[in-house]
Design a protein around this nucleic acid. Sequence first.
DNA 1: CGACGGGACGC
DNA 2: CGACGGGACGC
Length: 475
Amino acid sequence: MEDFASKQVTENLDEPPNSRLFIVTCRSMSEDVIKDTFAVFGDIQAVWVVKDKQTKESKGVSYVKFAKSSQACLAMEEMHGKVVIEGTKPIKVFIAQSRSSGRHRDVEDEELTRIFVMIPKTFTEDDLKETFKEYGDIEYCVIIKNKFTGESKGLGYVRYYKPSQAAMAIENCDRGYRAILAEPRSKTNSAEGEYAGGGGGGGAGARFDQHGGDNMNPYPFAPMGADPGNYQMADYRSSDVMTRCLMLSSRAAVTQEQVYALFDIIPGMDYCELQRDAYGLSKGHAVIRYNNLGSAVYAKEKLSGFEYPPGNRLALSFIDDGDDRNSPVGRMAMQFVAAQMMSTLWNGPSGNQLLKTATSFPGAPAAPRIQADLSLPAIKKLAPQDSKVKERLFVVFSPSPLSMDVLEDVFCRYGSLIEVHLVPGRKVGYMKYADKQCADDAMAALHGHMVNGVRMKVMLADPPREESHKRPRTY
DNA sequence: CGACGGGACGC
DNA sequence: CGACGGGACGC
């Protein structure tokens, strides 16, 4: 059983971390004595006495590999400074530097006694201490908090008195705490500049920043304070003249295909082209022409202020295509009638609410904020939040993700949807279903289709990586 | 192409 | 002061 086959040992030398001892002995200490001395502390996987290549005499240095870090630490704590052979110097015992680290500095207790854990945000430092004291006496506990609000970041440090205690905590505490050895404070962390002042989650923060940028340059149709939703009427109050031709202004880069797909949802588009500069780059402007006034008026009303991609409010204005020259008064009247007619035809009496970002409420008539290239069934109730997930769909969005509420609105319509999960910073998401057939139906119906100008690939998700017993996230 | 599960301390 | 051997699966 103790066949220290050499090759296996080399590969597992630093696995798990800190499970190997570096021992300084007198030169007469044999491998057998070392083995017998240290076997009482745990499962020894290898013993190696370093010898001079020529004389084959011991250099007074040995390595002992244990199965666990806690065993190695315990052996170190118990044996360091002990006289093993009467009349010789006491031995020195350290945790060996990992072979790949290349340096030979002693590993100090400082580096082995403090652990770093993820905890519920509701945890106090007393809770932390109560949770981790079973592995050994705790010198102190600290929870990382937001400096301004005092809110816990869900991260904590626990300092033990002995390396074996920290190792026991790491080995035996609930995996949900994700306990690891803490990096010593002294060494200045590189790559910190990026996170200056920010606080947590990069993706969400970045998106907020973008919204902030928008707010610096408010559009007239996207009022920030009270009285949202009257931007549609601006045209009737202004001297702007309605035409069949629209100019799109987008702050974010958009492609020809995106603009085409978005405006083609409204029937009657007969021309759509991005304006490009001398270098062929998009200037964020596009011209869209419809073959009838009603469609153009409708497009302007409903897509002005629409977020595409999310966070980027589109601006639309009528432009003169040089055609359409009738008597101004008669034209205005005709256009107004056309607009009213289109609005009623498409949306019913409450058409002006289209494309607002209000969340849908089950039971109410389908909120007319979804533009899709397929006919969607009616909204269905979500499955209870604690339903067992029977199937997950993996959805890829192009060119950018849809919002959570739009996705919920669309993917709930095939039944049993439990939850929408968007992966922050990525253009993918997961839809959890309580019924396999419903998930299959949703996939069959929605794969390859377009919602609010966003193309979706809808596939069965790969099974999640099984990590046996993960504590439910509470933070 | 397009994948979930994370992470750092005012000395 | 006191830091890294021996040997080599089978695609």
